[in-house]
């Protein structure tokens, strides 16, 4: 029995060194050489200053910006140190109420828009940090942003196209628009 315990301790120690020290250090070393930007958080940089991460969504409530998907993080939306979804069940009335409120907020910012609201724009994302919205959700907001900014819709549509990514390799995932990138483009910061 003592022999087994000693063997177990030693094997645990050596495998820990291998998988818990050597392996992450090797991955870190290779990652920092091969993919330095991605390995350090995919920061959007301009003139040496970090403006955000292209992977972590930010909250927007001003009509002049495209809005991100709702975020259920606390104590504020898109809190990147506390990722979470709402975990509201499908029949929970709190979910229906929240969706109604979000539709109302969108209408208040853009009273003339009677089109059906794209579902992703009024439902909370799984992480609370979704950096993207569907092209439909961008389309829905386009006229509002153009009007508030006094720019032509074609002008804004060009920037939307620039921030849009299709399915990866034409097959995987869903087409999507990066909201932070788009709003930085609108502000002329990129």
């Amino acid at each position: 029995m003592l022999k087994i315990i000693r063997q177990a301790l030693l094997i645990l120690l050596f495998l820990t060194v291998l998988t818990g020290v050597a392996y992450p250090l090797a991955v870190t070393g290779l990652a920092q050489i091969l993919f330095p930007s991605q390995a350090n958080g995919s920061l959007i940089e301009h003139d040496g200053k970090a403006l955000g991460s292209s992977l972590i969504g930010q909250p927007f409530a001003d009509p002049k910006y495209f809005w991100s998907r709702p975020s259920a993080t606390t104590p504020f939306a898109n809190n990147s140190t506390s990722s979470t979804g709402s975990n509201l069940g499908p029949t929970n009335s709190a979910l229906t109420d929240a969706v109604k409120q979000r539709i109302d907020a969108l209408h208040a910012a853009d009273p003339g828009n009677d089109a059906p609201t794209p579902v992703d724009l009024v439902t909370a994302s799984g992480s609370g940090l979704d950096p993207e919205i569907s092209p439909a959700a961008a389309q829905y907001q386009l006229a509002r942003v153009a009007r508030v900014r006094g720019r032509t819709q074609a002008d804004v549509a060009k920037l939307v196209a620039e921030a849009t990514e299709g399915r990866q390799f034409g097959i995987l995932g869903e087409p999507r628009v990066n909201v932070l990138r788009l709003n930085l483009l609108l502000d002329g910061k990129l």
């Binding site: 998907r69 979804g85 709402s86 975990n87 509201l88 499908p90 979910l95 794209p118 579902v119 992703d120 439902t123 909370a124 994302s125 799984g126 992480s127 979704d130 993207e132 919205i133 569907s134 092209p135 439909a136 959700a137 389309q139 995987l172 995932g173 869903e174 087409p175 999507r176």
Partner: peptide, 18 residues
């Protein structure tokens, strides 16, 4: 232009099927 469906708790890039 969108995945549609029950998007509560899901991420845009994955949509419904993923």
């Amino acid at each position: 232009l969108q995945a549609g469906g029950n998007m509560e708790g899901k991420e845009t890039r994955f949509g419904i099927v993923n």
